[in-house]
Design a binder for these strands. Structure first.
Lengths: 128, 128
DNA sequence: AGCTATAATGATAATCATTCCGAGTATTGA
DNA sequence: TCAATACTCGGAATGATTATCATTATAGCT
């Protein structure tokens, strides 16, 4: 686990790029931009360095924590709890907060139609 | 867009399965279970019917609305707004609610370490 | 400066979830 | 019963991501 990273021009430029944008880019976006400076850039390099930057705490990945989709026949509005150890998803029996949409809309000045909350932690089973 | 669905044994059984579980299953989980009743079942059938059930409002998909990961160099805790038209993600300048973790933890009786909120709607650009 | 250890690179192949296609089957309505 | 068309399986195609590997770059040491 002990890894001492060496610096790389590619990774430095990548962080610079990421810090200069607010667009929450995809790996592909980064690849296209970075290729202007490194004409032989490979996708593997982008992904590897994203992983390192995340490990270093400079970057966050915005995903669901799972590589595949999950489905729910409970179509009432409710929130989810995701166990970081076993990946189990369970419903959170907490009142749905409609006022939140208005609050966020007011702040950001856009039309908010819905929202979703995921809680992360350790479920009872994994918590021993 | 006008499609009149015919009933199918596979889809009926699928909905039954989904309604009988709280595990928020993956397509693969459904496939494995359903194969007990339909030995020649194909993955395409599972995905197609999931799409139909979602269209009919019987099932929800739990995903991020995007097929690829997105990255963020803003590592402070903040919420996101996702435009349902153009897919743009922007930050929501709203105070991060630490109390929410405790509230959810109390309700579900598990250890909540963090949470995430995504708001969905139409961004200013797309809202004409 | 050279020497050594090892992290990083680019190219390509592999993986994994998901979608698409096409020929045959099941369901519906008349 | 018949025609129209949605649904099926199976396999091939796709798209994002990850792994492999020979070569190159970086860092620390003398």
């Amino acid at each position: 686990m002990e890894t001492r990273y060496k610096k790389s021009r590619q990774r430095e430029k990548m962080l610079e790029l990421l810090r200069a944008t607010e667009s929450h880019p995809s790996a592909d976006w980064i690849y296209e931009r970075l290729k202007k400076d490194f004409k032989n850039l490979s996708m593997g390099t982008v992904y590897r360095n994203l992983g390192i930057l995340i490990d270093q705490g400079f970057v966050r990945k915005i995903d669901f924590g799972s590589t595949f989709d999950r489905f729910d026949a409970n179509v009432t509005r409710h929130y989810h709890f995701v166990c970081e150890k076993c990946g189990a998803i369970s419903d959170v029996e907490m009142p749905f907060d409609d006022a939140l949409n208005r609050k966020a809309g007011r702040v950001g000045n856009f039309e908010v139609r819905s929202h979703r909350i995921e809680f992360f932690g350790v479920c009872r089973k994994c918590g021993k």
